[in-house]
Design a protein around this nucleic acid. Sequence first.
DNA 1: CTGCATCCCGAGGGATACTG
DNA 2: CAGTATCCCTCGGGATGCAG
Lengths: 124, 124
Amino acid sequence: MDTNEYEDFLSNLKSYQGNPKCFLLQSLEILHGKWTAKIIFHLLKSESMRFGDLKKAIPAITNTMLTTTLRALEQQEILNRRQYNEIPPHVEYFLTEKGSALLPIFYELWHWGKIYPIENGISE
Amino acid sequence: MDTNEYEDFLSNLKSYQGNPKCFLLQSLEILHGKWTAKIIFHLLKSESMRFGDLKKAIPAITNTMLTTTLRALEQQEILNRRQYNEIPPHVEYFLTEKGSALLPIFYELWHWGKIYPIENGISE
DNA sequence: CTGCATCCCGAGGGATACTG
DNA sequence: CAGTATCCCTCGGGATGCAG
């Protein structure tokens, strides 16, 4: 973690006066969907995954939601779609640089959750 | 950022095989509400705030949602409620240690959003 | 000032079946 | 294999009014 950068953040935080361009809250919107984080999570550890791989990794997700979420993430340039023109179809999804840069956020979330575990554990 | 801790995280990430106790995704649930992050955000910079202060800081929120979100955060021990038995009523909200520990997550979100700004800026 | 009660709405998400 | 097409429904959130 860059110390100067961190100071910058703190001073920005303190001086915030309702500024609409708030990086922080915008970033959070990226992760808002029910499945968004799970998909990014699996792509962070696997370089690239096919549609079916993601379905296997996240059994509860439906085709519709997987497609919808993937499309949304693609549009936000979090991930890319690589299509091989074969029969049967073969499509791979992988994080962009922007998507991979989410790793530190995931680390901090993990770290926080480890220190302050949730009592009412989430079942699924 | 602790390097050993980070290595731990990476190895956990790689070896994840559908483990239901996923700190990462549980932590994310904390921030899911529409107003949750905004409230924490304002408390991070102000030590303590009254109900009315939060309403002024987040004009778009309704009484109902402010109350609901505050109660939820209180139950999760993110913040505490201090009530002064005065007329008129006087209540203050402030982050717990657990709540304050969210700061690094907010820093990383801010940092990421600064590097990769969102084109279709969020209006409000 | 700080909230609760009530009623209401729509978007986000789910189920199922079908296709190139 | 990798999706579309439809239809359906829950529930998170909004509006308004009242109360201690």
